[in-house]
Write a protein that binds this DNA or RNA. Structure first.
Lengths: 148, 148
DNA sequence: ACCATATACTTTGATGTTCAAAGTAATCGG
DNA sequence: CCGATTACTTTGAACATCAAAGTATATGGT
């Protein structure tokens, strides 16, 4: 009993570190190495839908707007992000991806897909379903218990 | 098929962010809030066994020794870590936890245990085993595929 | 219409993390 | 015993992050 818990804990911790590590290394070897990992996550949060206000992106990322401002400064300079004032409300700054930003986002999405595809390959039919169900239960639990 | 992959990806990403978040918040509310999350991970890596050389701890954490030096400076000042020169080889610096450091480590371990215990509670009998097996497969795969 | 207040964002100053490269001290091999 | 290696520390630089102060715009109440 206790042992299973330790084992589960161990694998979660290891998996955690591995994912961060792999993502970092993949980024620094790929065609978008000018980006940092957190800039890539900003790009992901902006997404390819409508332009979003700073505050919306910051909230998706769970960082302060001040922190986001700095990241956006850099991403605009690098050509990955458009920044424009809203016409209806001139206080609002709308953020969207440039074509280059969209490319970077696709590239990153492809990396995630690959990682997941490998994962799916090495699991058996039923295992996949149980894994999804378990992860779903866990995330839901954490959400209600700890989030916000 | 494709949908399952997306779902799995989604839950992994969410779980990932949740864990970091929860850990951070739990730390800043607890009795060891003077510590940063990465300092806590240094403490965890030092462990409660024998004193370890800097290089051993750095390798556990996968950071450079220079980075570790800075963290240890701070942890020594805060009273969580002992730093002593080895007698056999005076180049070597041996790191160990003070009683306070051990306390912090236990506190952190308890937090992990709780998180895992909740997870176990909400899973059914067989799900737990499949989850462990799946995570084990995934981490092993990542290890051989990506880890150097 | 006006002003106080609230909102959306940027700037600033501070802390923390991390690395690579240069520096220091001790050991080891021939 | 000297040159090379090893173990660590220091330094300089980039980045991430926050809280608080600052700027510009909008809104609600009178």
């Amino acid at each position: 009993m206790i042992n299973k818990k330790e084992v589960l804990n161990h694998f979660l911790v290891v998996l955690f570190n591995q994912i961060l590590n792999i993502e970092e290394k993949a980024l620094k070897k790929g065609p978008f190495k000018v980006l940092t990992l957190s800039e890539l996550h900003v790009i992901e949060a902006i997404g390819e839908e409508n332009p979003l206000p700073m505050s919306a992106v910051a909230s998706r990322l769970d960082v302060t707007v001040g922190t986001l401002t700095i990241a956006i400064n850099s991403l605009v300079k690098k050509g990955y992000v458009n920044r424009e004032r809203s016409i209806e409300d001139k206080r609002v700054v709308l953020i969207s991806l440039t074509p280059l930003g969209v490319e970077a986002n696709h590239h990153h999405a492809r990396f995630h897909e690959e990682m997941i595809a490998y994962t799916v390959n090495i699991l058996e039919e039923g295992e996949m379903d149980v894994l999804i169900k378990s992860l779903s239960k866990i995330t839901t639990y954490f959400e209600t218990k700890y989030d916000k």
